[in-house]
């Protein structure tokens, strides 16, 4: 059942981005910034955690999840380390995703060459 929810919620989260791409001048990069920021806000309000319990990857896989874990990480770091946690939290929470993308990105560049663009 949660797989179906993940499909429906994950898919639904992509639709506003598609509307923004097609009907406004917003570039994909700006839209992703919006999603991450929205994720941080949802995480700060505690809504992200509630959503994740309900639909799992439906909310954690879209970039909202990236923002959500940043908010979670910040909260945890401040609970443990007070003021310094403000700076430790964001990147600690984002560490796995970012490092994985960087490492796989580097390895991919080592192995593959760019393909010609086709229509």
């Amino acid at each position: 059942m949660s797989i179906l929810y993940a499909f429906l919620v994950g898919g639904a989260l992509c639709v506003p981005a598609q509307i923004l791409i097609d009907r406004t001048k917003l570039t994909p990069a700006r839209i992703l910034v919006l999603y991450v920021t929205l994720g941080v806000i949802l995480g700060a309000l505690g809504l992200y955690q509630t959503l994740r319990d309900a639909v799992g990857c439906g909310v954690s896989v879209p970039l909202i999840g990236f923002g959500g874990v940043i908010a979670e990480g910040v909260k945890k770091a401040i609970d443990e380390e007070a003021f310094l946690g403000i700076f430790k939290g964001p990147l600690t929470a984002a560490a796995v995703g970012t490092s994985a993308a960087l490492v796989f990105g580097y390895l991919t560049a080592l192995i593959f060459n760019g393909k010609p663009h086709k229509m």
């Binding site: 791409i21 994909p28 760019g114 393909k115 010609p116 663009h117």
Partner: peptide
């Protein structure tokens, strides 16, 4: 050249976009 122009004016060739 599509490759050099995309890189210079738009985005990486393998970047997924419409």
């Amino acid at each position: 050249h599509n490759g050099s122009a995309e890189r210079q004016f738009r985005q990486p060739l393998e970047y997924g976009s419409q």
